[in-house]
Amino acid sequence: MSLNKNQAQHIAMLARLKLSDDEYAESVEKLSKIIDFVDQLSAVDTTDIIPMAHPLAAAQRLRPDDVTEVDNRDHYQQNANEVVDGLYLVPKVLE
């Protein structure tokens, strides 16, 4: 199937990506090719096959709910663009 520009815009919004008009044109073309390519899976009979959850069929490990990490906030925030009083600054959300 081939995508149209509206679908590409919808996907880009879901993915929180702002694209230029040129990028949309290219996305529509290349994403359509990729979707066509992976569409060959639809012909495979997978009746009663359980979707793989882990390549080694291992279960997710759990640990006791204890505090194990120390507070490194100041250190981590050195990579942030805008910080005030230990808080990350973003454009105003509420008027």
């Binding site: 880009a12 990028e23 996305s27 994403l31 990729i34």
Partner: peptide
Amino acid sequence: DLLDLYCRSRGEGFGDEVKRRIMTGAY
């Protein structure tokens, strides 16, 4: 606004192939 910050930071920060894979995944 916040949405514009997310969308433009990601649109400008990621290259073409990464954006393509993210969009394929989102689809």
